[in-house]
């Protein structure tokens, strides 16, 4: 009897000890739960009625008593309906109208430049490349206001030492239009895109380029026939990165589009407007925010590998 008790207690302590040394693995799952819970709570609440959202937390979802005729998609119905003053549907279209060209245009332009930096030998290539990539960390705020003014009234050059002005770009009336946002995104994305694509394109085998040149192909043909098809994975990585970036952007859109046509504002702006409207529509915010996050989440989960690769290949994006 007396011998058994310490042994048993020792085994209890042993178990406790072992479970404690196993801390790391379940700590990982604690992290996972903490990281997922906020998003999950938003998702759950977006299916609950206004009263339920206001009366209890999302964890009480199974105790909900729903009013007559309530369906779980009601919030989404309202947010996405055509009559809705919140106009989330219009914004979804606007967001796409911004994100798609803002993804395609920089890819093309940056891949030209990345090819030139990697495979065309010209004087001052390295300093120019470093200078281009150094622009990556320039904060957008530094360029935003003058850029907005360019879109507002064209570009004019005031000649030095005199007060004479020469118009280089006429006023194209871009302010408040989707194109102002797209052009800004293109400019700001280029340093990172060039860096990312250069990393990849410069590592293509040199013999391939050499043999193309021997066959009489000039740079244009080498680029079109050889480099472009080979660098599709890198282009895809950047495309996903840039799509998420532009879809989720708020600062540029708010700068270029505020005070303009409410039909062209993207989802992020719409949600900020919705969030400013306290109380009355707060229950719609859950559905609205989730509708906004739905597209990037789908893109992210289905194309995660490319996203991660893009991140690894150019983890200096500001």
């Amino acid at each position: 009897m007396t011998a058994r008790v310490p042994r048993r207690s020792a085994s209890v302590i042993d178990k406790l000890y072992r479970s404690l040394t196993n801390v790391p693995l379940w700590a990982l799952w604690v992290f996972v739960v903490i990281w997922t819970l906020p998003t999950l709570s938003l998702l759950v609440n977006s299916f609950r009625s206004r009263d339920n959202q206001r009366n209890s937390g999302f964890w009480r979802v199974f105790g909900d008593e729903n009013p007559e005729g309530f369906s779980v998609f009601d919030n989404y119905e309202v947010v996405l309906s055509t009559e809705s003053t919140n106009g989330m549907l219009q914004s979804l279209i606007s967001s796409l109208a911004i994100a798609v060209p803002s993804t395609i245009i920089p890819i093309a332009i940056a891949s030209f430049a990345a090819y030139a930096f990697a495979w065309i030998d010209f004087k001052g290539r390295k300093p120019l490349f470093i200078a281009t990539v150094a622009l990556m960390s320039i904060p957008m705020q530094v360029a935003l206001i003058p850029l907005l003014r360019t879109y507002l009234g064209g570009a004019h050059l005031t000649l030095p030492f005199s007060n004479r002005t020469l118009s280089l770009v006429p006023d194209l009336d871009l302010a408040g239009s989707t194109w102002a946002v797209v052009l800004s995104h293109t400019g700001f994305a280029l340093p990172f895109a060039i860096f990312l694509l250069h990393n990849y394109i410069s590592q293509l085998p040199g013999e391939l380029m050499e043999s193309a040149r021997v066959d009489g192909a000039d740079h244009f043909h080498t680029y079109m026939k050889l480099v472009l098809p080979l660098s599709v994975p890198a282009l895809a990585s950047f495309a996903i990165f840039q799509f998420l970036w532009t879809w989720n952007d708020y600062l540029i859109a708010a700068t270029m589009l505020s005070g303009g046509d409410p039909d062209v504002i993207p989802t992020t702006m719409r949600i900020v407007n919705l969030a400013g409207d306290f109380g009355r529509t707060e229950h719609l915010l859950t559905a609205g925010a989730f509708a906004q996050a739905f597209v990037p989440l789908v893109v992210f989960f289905s194309l995660q590998r490319y996203f991660v690769r893009g991140l690894l290949a150019g983890s200096v994006k500001g």
Binding site: W35, P38, T39, N248, I271, V272, A275, P296
Partner: peptide, 16 residues
Amino acid sequence: FIFMPMAISMVGASII
């Protein structure tokens, strides 16, 4: 799951 918030906009994250 840890990585997922990267796909959500900062606006969306603030709402969450």
